[in-house]
Amino acid sequence: MSRGKRTLFVTLLCATATCAAAEDEMFEDHHAHEHGVATLNVAVDASRLALQFRSPAMNLVGFEHRPRTAQDQAAVSQALEWLRDPAGQFQPSAEASCRVVKSEVTPPDWEDPSGHSEFAADYEFDCQKQAALQHLYVRLLEHLEAETKIEAQVAAPDGQHSTELTRANTRLVLRKPVR
């Protein structure tokens, strides 16, 4: 590519980028929302284990509109009940003797202008035996829609990595980065 062409190309690119940025300003919430995929961010440091779970409501209750029927309402209550039980749904290695020190569950905002709504949950565990903290078993997958994947990212003192969790693979490795 000649210099002139390249400059033009870059200018065009920048123009597109500016447009995208301007558009971003218009929306409150612009992060990816993909049905069938939930995200789990796991951070480990010393005795602490922090989890951030985000999932489109679709994966947990099967709809994203304001609950209309008693059945809808029951599904939402059930989902919130699961999420308010971190020790049952997200189990760190038993030998590490972890206990929940923080649990914040945010129910979906059914009025979200994007038309999508999602569940959010933030947890923190405190573990007595940090060396034994090797895995996290995500039991919640059994309650999610069958094909749901959880895209998990781990940030730990000995490295960062990402893994895809499914019903067939509910164990998240926390220590050695898997390559």
């Binding site: 971003d24 440091d45 922090a50 951030q52 940030a155």
Partner: peptide, 24 residues
């Protein structure tokens, strides 16, 4: 602390002052 990794990442990605990206 590594515990803050995702929280800081999110606040940078959602920073309104300029379009930024934080990656692991």
């Amino acid at each position: 602390s590594k515990i803050d990794t995702f929280q800081i990442q999110r606040s940078i990605n959602e920073y309104r002052g300029e379009p930024l990206l934080a990656i692991l």
